[in-house]
Nucleic acid binder design. Structure first.
Length: 424
RNA sequence: GGAGGGAUGGCCGAGUGGACGAAGGCGCCUGUCUUGAAAACAGGUAAGGGUGUCCCCCUUCGAGGGUUCGAAUCCCUCUCCCUCCGCCA
């Protein structure tokens, strides 16, 4: 959610921000009109309420029955007016917030302008793209051949875009999760195990609603959503709370499965495990003071980078342009790893500074030491990292001619010492 | 799933139609006293909003509706928590 004051006082900043994102900037005008109307009604209704409050107190003290009744009648009329105005106000308010809820965050000045993902900027590329003296296979061939990914069983028990990991494949994923969580703990994050189902207010607070209803799974009977990312419960974790300044920053990491309907990507990436309706992810999340969020962003980025670096995967870092930024983000870096079999860069992490956008929606503030006024804090989120795609990169980049896979050294402690995954 | 009880400020806890944004206590802050601290005493101590800026107004006593001139207090709906029974990993 944007600050209504920003829109009121600097509408051009907001318009330009929306335009940079290739979003419709005209809504700003309706927001301003509604805001004006709202404050107009508010002024009127508050004046009437003030009158009613003072007169009602007088009535309580009045002895003379006649003049007392007269005042009561007067106030009854005032009460009717208040009721009408309150109804108007409710209507205007609802309309205003429903529009506000659909406005994305304003891009940071540090985010380069661009129309769409084709204009994202490669900041750096690290590691050598592996060369093979044989034809490297894609994971969707390797997985079934090694008996570690079972696509047919996944489809049988659930449907398309579901798969079963088996034996060393399942264990590899579990090793990666443990490796990442342990690394993030060392980097200063506190591990959280959160609910995988959340209520509407929680999804709204993280900014996934109302805009992304179509991508969420929902239990309509209980009115609960399956989390599309750990970012959602980690935002909700401190919803409606006020921190003391000294309690910040808070760094959290959490493993969760993520559930996404992928309605927008129907027919895309249907092969392999690149885009499933259910995938696992380890997430990093930060609550920080506004003046610290730029530095926090750099830290989180470095922390995510360490994951892929330690795994020895060739990767590159992309800075998203304004046209490709996520809904709540002001600035985002993506990490992509190379996959030798699919022959493409795979996005495994996305680190964003959301500034006060989620904090405002979820009502998360802190009390500055030198001020009475509570302020919204800043939140950041980043994957550290998404499991299936990391699995793809490991399988494809560490493959050998006989179809076996070498396990990266750093994972072996969690693999029971297994060094190679080979066909039985 | 069945039966009952509850939700008030940072915490405990009073309050069943008017002087209650809310007694009292704890905690915290400031001042007096003190070389300093403690104690004692005095004062202060919620959030949000407003074409208000040290003065005021509005809203908020789990949430949302309603009754009333006036609601923490009465009515309705919902949520959450606790106790007992049943079921269960």
């Amino acid at each position: 959610m944007l600050d209504i004051r920003l829109i009121r006082e600097n509408p051009d900043v907001v318009r330009q921000g929306l335009e940079k994102r290739q979003a419709d900037a005209e809504v700003v005008d309706s927001v301003i009109a509604l805001d004006e109307r709202r404050r107009e009604i508010l002024g009127e209704v508050e004046k009437l309420k003030a009158e009613r409050n003072t007169v009602s107190k007088e009535i309580g003290r009045m002895k003379n029955a006649e003049s007392r009744q007269e005042k009561i009648n007067e106030m009854r009329a005032v009460g009717d007016q208040i009721k009408d105005l309150d109804d108007d106000l409710r209507g205007v308010d609802a309309e205003l917030t429903s529009i506000m809820a659909t406005l994305p965050n304003i891009p940071s000045d540090a985010t380069p302008y661009g129309v769409d993902e084709s204009e994202n900027v490669v900041l750096k590329t690290v590691g050598e793209i592996p060369q093979f003296d044989f034809d490297p296979q894609p994971h969707w061939d390797m997985g079934p051949a090694l008996g570690i990914i079972d696509f047919e069983r996944g489809v049988k028990i659930t449907g398309s875009r579901f798969y079963v990991l088996s034996g060393a494949g399942a264990r590899l994923q579990r090793a990666l999760i443990a490796f990442m969580l342990d690394l993030h703990i060392k980097q200063g994050y506190t591990e959280k195990y959160t609910p995988f189902m959340v209520k509407t207010a929680t999804v709204y607070g993280a900014g996934q609603l109302p805009k992304f209803v179509g991508n969420l799974y929902k239990d309509h009977e209980e009115d609960l959503y399956l989390v599309p990312t750990a970012e959602v419960p980690l935002t909700g974790y401190h919803m409606d709370e006020i921190f003391e300044e000294g309690d910040l920053p808070k760094y959290y990491t959490a493993y969760t499965p993520c559930f996404r309907r992928e309605k927008m990507s129907a027919g895309r990436d249907v092969r392999g495990i690149k885009r499933g309706h259910q995938f696992d992810k380890v997430e990093m999340y930060m609550y920080v003071k506004p003046e610290e969020s730029d530095a926090a962003f750099e830290k989180m980025m470095a922390d995510a980078e360490e994951v892929v670096a330690m795994l020895g995967l060739p990767y590159r870092i992309l800075q998203l342009c304004t046209g490709d930024l996520g809904f709540g983000a002001t600035i985002t870096y993506d990490i992509e790893v190379w996959s030798a079999g699919c022959n493409e860069w795979l996005e495994v992490s996305s680190v964003s500074n959301v500034t006060d956008f989620q904090a405002r929606r979820a009502n998360i503030r802190y009390r500055p030491e030198d001020s009475k006024k509570n302020r919204f804090l800043h939140t950041l989120n980043g994957s550290g990292t998404a499991l299936p795609r990391i699995m793809i990169a490991i399988m494809e980049n560490y493959q050998q001619e006989d179809g076996s896979i070498i396990i990266p050294e750093v994972l072996r402690p969690w693999m029971g010492g297994i060094e190679v995954i080979a066909a039985e």
